[in-house]
Every structure is written in structure tokens, then in C-alpha cells.
Amino acid sequence: MTSTAASRRHRRRPLNSAWGYVLVAPAMLVFAVFSIGPTVFAFGISLFDWNYLNAAKSTFVGLENYLRLADLDRDPSFLQTMGVSLYFVGAMVIGGTVMSLALAMLMRRATKLMLAARASVFLAHVTPIVATSLVWIWIYNPRFGLANGVLHLFGMDSLDWLGSRSTAMISIIVYTLWHEVGFTMIIFVGGLATISGELSEAARVDGATGLKEFWYITLPQLTGYVIFVVVIGSIASLHAFTQFFMLTGGGPDHATATLGYQLYQQAFVFRKTGYGAALAVVLFTICAVLSLSQLRLSRRLNRTD
């Protein structure tokens, strides 16, 4: 036994060979050139007054782009941008998590009808954001839109959904929930499939009903999934861009200019590449902190399991 094992170790086994490096090389090269490198480069750009026509003419300005973040007279100021982002992220995370959890509970049984219902909700997530943003622009149309048609049914006055400061963000949130909830619902459906039915049954024998059973038995077993959904939800909402570009263009009056949208606006419309890069670094830092805390939390959860 030992002699064959030793002789086998002597020969170079294919799965221990250096081919491993060759196999991971293409993927690592793509990541290095288009993700890891650029992230470092973004930090570099943020230290320059970058000349987008001729990079060689850029001048080093140190932390000046970051100092501008503290400038409250800018329109919009960084503080305002972060406030708008927080509104959107908060609504998406709370609304999205609650809605998708409720939908997952509703559709948790895998009957034919439930599977079809899940597919219908997920379908919205599959549609291109440009195409369905356009659909919703028409739905939100102040004069002929379906949204006002619904209000009309209930005897309410028409709203200028996307055109007024007070409703623009809510309109985008409703669209984004419609688009994203299917995805997180499916994650929770997967989570619900892994938890044990025994505990719920025992609770039911002990007289726990619906909501109580959900709160004390089901939800604690889903904690890992909830954390995951909250974190990917906040990252996705922080850098969401296309629906803002299509529906409102950051307006009216910067009411929907989130961090992701401002980054585009500053870098590609106003051509303030350096300042845009500084915003990108801020965005990256927030996302990294969120991802790392998710990793931490889920590790701790797994350990106590």
C-alpha cells in the first residue's frame, strides 16, 4: 500500500501539475485587465485633473477631487447625492426584501400554478431595462398614462409622476421593484426549500399560527439569505444607472441623481473625469465594505449553525 502510494507520488500526477495555472490564466487575465487593474487605475485618475482628450496633459492635484466632495455649494452637492442615494437604496432594500420574502412565502409550494406565477414575476427581471423603462415612461405619462388611469378609477386626480419632485423617485422605485423583485424572490424560494419542515410542524403542534410561526421559526432560518439579499440589493441600487438615465435623467432638479447617475453625469457629460473617478472610488469603498461585512456575518452564522 505505502509503496504504491509513494511511487505514485513520485510520478507527477496530472491534477497536481502546473497546468492549473494555464487553466485559470484566461479568466484571471480578463479580470486583471478589465476589473482589478481599472479599480486601481480609478484611484490614480481621481488624484488628477484629468484631461479626457489628451491624458498626457492631465495635472496632478492630489486630494483636491476628494475635497470637492465636501463642497456644499456645488449643484448638486455630494451630500445631496448621498441623501438621494440613501432614499433609493433604503426603499429598495426594505421594500425589495419584504416584498420578495412575502412573494416567496406565497409561492413556496411547487404546484404547477405556483411555478407559472413565479415565472411571471421572474419574467420582469429578465426584460432589458431600456425596453421596460420605456414601457413605464408611457405608463407614467401625465396625460395619457395607465398609472393616472388607475388613479382615475379610484376618483383621484392625475399626477405628473416623473416630472414632479415629490413623485419622481417613488416612480423609479416602483419600476425598479417591479424589475428586481423576481430575482430576490427566487433566492428566497431556494432558501425556503433548504429549511426543515420539522420545526414548523412542531411549532404548529404547540399552537403557533401563521405570522408567529413565520417570525420565530421560518425567518431565523433564512437569516443568511436575508443578509445576502440586503447586501446585493444595496450594491445594485447604489450603482443603478439605466432606469435613471431613461426615466428622469437625474431630474427634476437633481431629485433622482443618485451616486451611480452622478458618476456618469460628472465623468461623461461634464467631462470631469477626475471628479467622476473620485465618486467611483467612494462607490467602490462603500460596496467593498458592504461585501466584506456580508462575508463576515455569514461566516459567523455558519459557525454557530
Binding site: G20, M28, F31, F34, T39, H239, G260, V281, F284
Partner: peptide, 29 residues
Amino acid sequence: FRGRGILFGLCMAVMMVPQTVLLVPNFVI
């Protein structure tokens, strides 16, 4: 192979970088 863990960790770290962050530097690149 040596460094497998580090390389895999690096892959996972890439997931943390949102696409919007990369727009500016990748445009220049």
C-alpha cells in the same frame, strides 16, 4: 497548485467591484 487559494480569493474580490466603478477607468483604458 501553489497560490490556488489566493487566486480564487482574487476572483471573488472581483465580484465586489460594481460595473459603474469601472466605467471611467475602462473608458480611458
